[in-house]
Design a protein around this nucleic acid. Sequence first.
DNA 1: CACGGATGTGGCAGATTGTCGCATGGTTTC
DNA 2: GAAACCATGCGACAATCTGCCACATCCGTG
Lengths: 183, 183
Amino acid sequence: MDTNSTALRFLIVDDDETFSRVLSRAIKRRGYETAIAGSAEQALTMLDTFRPDLATLDLKMGGASGISLIPQLKAVNPDIRILILTGYASISTAVEAIKLGATDYLAKPADTDQILAKLNGSTPDPDVEIADKPMSVGRLEWEHIQKVLTEHEGNISATARALGMHRRTLQRKLQKRPVREEH
Amino acid sequence: MDTNSTALRFLIVDDDETFSRVLSRAIKRRGYETAIAGSAEQALTMLDTFRPDLATLDLKMGGASGISLIPQLKAVNPDIRILILTGYASISTAVEAIKLGATDYLAKPADTDQILAKLNGSTPDPDVEIADKPMSVGRLEWEHIQKVLTEHEGNISATARALGMHRRTLQRKLQKRPVREEH
DNA sequence: CACGGATGTGGCAGATTGTCGCATGGTTTC
DNA sequence: GAAACCATGCGACAATCTGCCACATCCGTG
């Protein structure tokens, strides 16, 4: 372990205040310096005074998504390690995030240890565990919707049209949390 | 469209023979040279004589998983574009695959157009507007159910359990939708 | 500023799903 | 052969969910 005189700076971007506060405290207790942003926009304004070494980003927030923040965070600090942390996890957003340079991707709920483990000891290994059960229909539907949604740059109306589904129905599905992916 | 004298070589690694054959034919029809491997091991032995430019890999096969193949394929051809294509998709394997250098990750069922779109996405292509509509959720669900049903030799009760769905609901779905395909 | 497109919501009637229950037919096990 | 299991088909009913219509905001382009 490298012992720097200054603590590593940890930025939490999430619009769930309760979640942020709890996580912040847990992380601070482990010796990090933390900061909380309630939106992507707010996070950007903080970068002048707080240059993070680690960050967790939420996807679904009022305003811009955490994914859009990845390039900007990396511009400020190319060595930053970024963990996407969201309750609306999907394969397509995970793929996009990693391609943009995120270090890892976790679905909420996740505890502090899991979060730090992903940020610290994350080395790609080809022997990941492969699910032995196929996806549930609910999960498959969620993934498919997310995929089409990203293909349409998040345009809900266009996605609904492409899927031959009523826009109202799509909105309702998106508001609900995806079925938990269990191993 | 760039006209090379030699066609791009496309490697399909999947232990589902029917799937491989259908995909191979569809891809060949679009001007690629194709090869099929039924396992990761078999794919490796082919690399001496068939150096692929594009590849789709399955995750769950007898023997090694497609993910373990990624580094080896990239060693042979650093510019190779790799698409993970699996019926046992999960976020964690998607993250690993992308970290190891896969180009993209799709959950089966996916049609040929989607597959090629993902693999060509990084190639200069002027008019990449969303060509035709993606599968409807209903159709996707139907295909998935059929696939799992087959894996369970037509056993409805077992299929319902595997899908985390109530048997009664599965019965009703099967009884109803006789398959509705159209564009 | 008017116009078209996207989005967030509320409200409803009708369709779908989650559960229970029960009966039948086939296999396996003493 | 009878008991014990399973898979399957189907009726019924309440809880959800979906398709649709109706606004009310917000943009960005003319």
